[in-house]
């Protein structure tokens, strides 16, 4: 996979839990342009183990001198976000992937409703730049816990003006999804990024109101969940690998020196899909990619976020 060598040129604490990082290319040349909603995967070497975390690009897609990401310190972090907060310093070199967009704006949409919860605001920051440039009809609905957690609100007010609607939980302000989605013109698209409950509520509300499936967009990167350790066999490589409790299957495969395809590492894109040749127990499918029928068939698994419970799992790799 093609990677880009960058270095950190600025770090800013924007809320009690969120840090903002600015990267430039290590050799001083320009970074690739990108489209609103894109993310990059950042590689972190934590004590010899490579962690790869996806983060949305927040800057304007037209500005290619620097990339901007924001990282929320996760309470149950497997190490990645804590490392970003505590160990990454200005001047440090990092490796990132080229931008990937799994959450793009529907260019033919006539109106765009963006719904963000907390750190879920990040992919919308670049989309707003695109929407403003295209002079598009849009509304941004941004919900956050309390005033000190809404550090992007001031910046957004400047960029979005009347398009912005904020909902501050501690002040009892609530976003009424039913009312918002019930009365929109034909050709409107809705986009949601935020906590699981908010994403599910938005999807349910839109579906129940009869919105067409291809007008409903969401992005929710999963962190690989921890679980019981298990063993896997790689048939083509002819090796057995132990997947520890806090490691993902994909990380264990990579640590064993076997090359595996991946893109988002968050159960969304489908790139790391592997064929299951044999299994004796339940597979814990945690991804958003496989259909329920595919999950039930036990023929495929996404090693970036899914796990196994049985004694035997043979993969075609």
């Amino acid at each position: 996979m093609s990677m880009i060598n960058v270095k950190v040129v600025a770090i800013e604490q924007v809320t009690p839990l969120v840090k903002h990082f600015t990267f430039v290319k290590e050799d001083g040349s320009s970074l690739p342009a990108f489209s609103g909603g894109s993310h990059v995967v950042v590689s972190l070497d934590i004590g010899g183990r490579i962690h790869r975390n996806p983060y949305s690009l927040m800057g304007s897609p037209m500005e290619n001198e620097a990339y901007h990401i924001s990282v929320r310190k996760q309470e149950n972090s497997r190490g990645g976000s804590v490392f970003m907060h505590e160990n990454v310093t200005v001047g440090m070199p990092l490796k990132i992937t080229y931008p990937v967009n799994l959450f793009s704006l529907a260019k033919k949409g006539r109106k765009h409703i963006l719904i963000a919860g907390g750190i879920g605001i990040t992919p919308f920051m670049s989309q707003i730049a695109d929407l403003n440039r295209m002079n598009a009809n849009y509304e941004l609905h941004y919900a956050y816990r309390s005033p000190e957690h809404g550090a992007f609100a001031a910046q957004l007010k400047e960029k979005c003006g009347d398009h912005l609607h904020c909902y501050i939980d501690s002040q009892g302000q609530r976003l009424d999804l039913q009312a918002l989605l019930n009365d929109q013109p034909l050709g409107t698209h809705v986009y949601v990024c935020g906590p699981n409950a908010m994403v599910l509520a938005t999807l349910d509300t839109a579906r129940n109101l009869g919105w067409p499936e291809n007008h409903i967009h969401s992005e929710q990167f999963l962190s690989p969940p921890t679980g019981e350790p298990f063993k896997i066999q790689l048939a083509r490589s002819n090796i057995e690998i132990q997947v520890s409790a806090e490691m993902s299957m994909l990380e264990a495969i990579e640590a064993a020196g076997v090359e595996a395809d991946y893109l988002c590492r968050g159960g969304v894109c489908g790139r790391c899909e592997l064929d299951v040749l044999e299994t004796d127990g339940a597979l814990e499918h945690n991804d958003h990619f496989l259909t329920d029928t595919e999950k039930a068939s036990c023929k495929k698994i996404m090693p970036c976020v899914s796990r196994a419970k049985g004694e035997r799992l043979v993969l075609d790799l």
Binding site: P32, Y98, V100
Partner: peptide, 11 residues
């Protein structure tokens, strides 16, 4: 198609 939907910038 599945392959192309994952086509990456720079690759």
């Amino acid at each position: 198609l599945k392959y192309l939907l994952n086509l990456q910038l720079g690759s």
